[in-house]
């Protein structure tokens, strides 16, 4: 069944939002490395990630992260989370945002410095976040998630709207972090990011269609790219 070395384990997870069943009995295990959660907008990716960090009200089932119940106190300094909204203060500078969250987490100034340089915002350190570009703003959100070297990073669409060079740099960063032992769970609705992941979860309408390495998913569907594999899997599902 579910591997005991899993970083995240979902069992029979059910989520109802506004009277609609979003996730209906999901079983899933996420392991070390970079795991991509791919699917179209509205398929339940954000809801799943919110359940993993423990801010989603759930209707049934369990979510276990690093051996603890999702969102429980021992995890609050071990899981870094970034939402699509960046979740930073627009009226504070980059450095002020990072220092504030570092103080809440109880980690030192060194952590602030390394988080800012990891997302390549050292030059923008004293700028007010509201005056940055959308891409820079979302990198501030990412830097906050990196504070204090968490064991699990949960990133909701961190590469949306970024230029290709920066996107490549961020994926390199995710792999460096994974090599240092941080499990990285990244969502995206852009299928061409699939090949950058160690493992892939393809999601549609609250269901996981496939969960394997990108190569294995392509091989099992006889496809040369993930988009075609996705379509083949949807077709198989409907049949």
């Amino acid at each position: 069944m579910v591997n005991s070395s899993a970083v995240v384990e979902l069992r029979d997870l059910q989520v109802v939002r506004g009277g609609q069943v979003v996730l209906d009995g999901l079983d899933l295990a996420v392991h070390a490395g970079v795991t991509g959660l791919l699917g179209p907008s509205g398929c339940g990716k954000s809801t799943l990630l919110r359940a993993v960090v423990g801010v989603q009200r759930i209707a049934g089932g369990t979510v276990t992260v690093l051996g603890h119940e999702a969102g429980s106190p021992p995890l609050r300094t071990r899981v870094g989370y970034m939402t699509q909204a960046s979740s930073v203060y627009d009226d504070l500078s980059v450095g002020e945002n990072l220092r504030f969250f570092a103080r809440v987490l109880g980690c030192g100034a060194g952590s602030v410095y390394s988080a800012i340089s990891a997302v390549d915002l050292t030059a923008q350190r004293d700028q007010v976040v509201g005056r940055l570009s959308g891409g820079q703003r979302s990198r501030v959100g990412l830097a906050v998630a990196l504070l204090g070297a968490p064991d699990l990073l949960v990133l909701d669409e961190p590469t949306v709207g970024l230029d290709p060079v920066l996107r490549r740099d961020l994926w390199d960063l995710f792999h460096r972090l994974a090599a240092d032992g941080t499990a990285v769970l990244v969502s995206s609705h852009v299928m061409d990011e699939a090949d950058r992941c160690d493992r892939l979860m393809l999601m549609r309408e609250g269901q996981i269609l496939a969960h394997d390495s990108p190569a294995a998913i392509k091989a099992s569907t006889g496809s040369t790219d993930i988009e075609t594999a996705f379509l083949a899997l949807v077709g198989r599902d409907a049949a």
Binding site: P73, T83, A85, S87, V88, Y89, D90, V104, L105, V144
Partner: peptide
């Protein structure tokens, strides 16, 4: 609405 409260709730606050 900006998500900062949600982020703080994933931290030891």
């Amino acid at each position: 609405s900006s998500g900062t409260l949600e982020r703080l709730f994933t931290m030891p606050m």
